[in-house]
Amino acid sequence: MYGTLSKSETLWPVFIVIAGLLLPFFANNYQLYLGCVLIVYVVLALGLDIIMGRAGQFAFSHIAFYGIGAYATAILQQRFGVPFPIGLVIAVLLSAGIAWLVAMASVRLRHIYLGLATVAFASAAQWLAQTWKGVTGGVDGMRLQPSDMIFFTSRTDASNFRILAVILAIMLLLNFLLIRSRLGRAMAAIRDSEHVASVSGIDVRRTKAWAFVISSAYACVGGGMLVVFNSFIDPMNFTFAPAVLLLTMLVVGGMGSVAGVVIGSLTMGILPEILRSTMGDFIVWQEFVYGLILVLSITLMPQGIWGLVRNRTESKRSAT
């Protein structure tokens, strides 16, 4: 795992960029918008997987940094005229700073305590977005202008999709690099056993804090991406429900693997769309069916879709 990128790891981002640039020629606005939604889910889920799947820490605060990213890029662009790419970098630095503080405060916590502390942090952040009217516009939300990309202004679904595809490719590449880095290995060691990791000379606190900061930076980028393809954001985007949805994506797809995370975010992202268009007169049962699918997929595949696929192929290999 350690070392330079494999062939497929370099090819995937390149493929995504090419596909992302070409797809808008063939797809309609509906498909492109849906594509944008799914791309943001993938970036958010990749980020959440860094702290949960790679470092094994149960953190709910992702959604808060998603909100910080969205509001920071939106405010920088609307009020101060900062172009999106520069605004996004500033937003990432800002949220990394906040994430560092949260990590320092919560690094002693393990297991469910960290989960609960971050639930509280996310809920408090959402409350702040609702209450701090002078900055966020409060519950009235913020109307967004088309994003200023320095060289051009992104006005259409097609150009929004292209921008998002490029960002996705970058974030995916960074994710591969992280996994293969020293830090990535240290994170995996902590996930497997904190005790063994610290004995073998890994600074557990520092590694956990870094995992948290990087994971939060991904969420912040996801928030920035939300601003690119939407004309309106309000605090309702950052409630507990999307936080649960993200967690679901990770678990349904399979934590700790890029393929699993991508599969999970695409499946759970598209599921409401499928349910909505297939359930017809039974649409009132949608919430129930969604819950049922969730429980069934967890009980049948606790390691996720990818975990199941991997187990199948491994057992086949060992059988022959």
Binding site: N28, N29, Y30, Y33, L34, V37, G141, R143, D157, N230, S231, F232, D234, M236, E273
Partner: peptide, 29 residues
């Protein structure tokens, strides 16, 4: 947002819908 784009692609004459402020304001532009 997805639904409205779908309707636009399907070619509808006009849209009638929305029971909440957030979802309707988000499609205003």
């Amino acid at each position: 947002n997805t639904i409205v784009r779908k309707y636009i692609n399907d070619g509808v004459f006009l849209l009638l819908g929305g029971s909440c402020s957030g979802s309707t304001v988000s499609i205003q532009e």
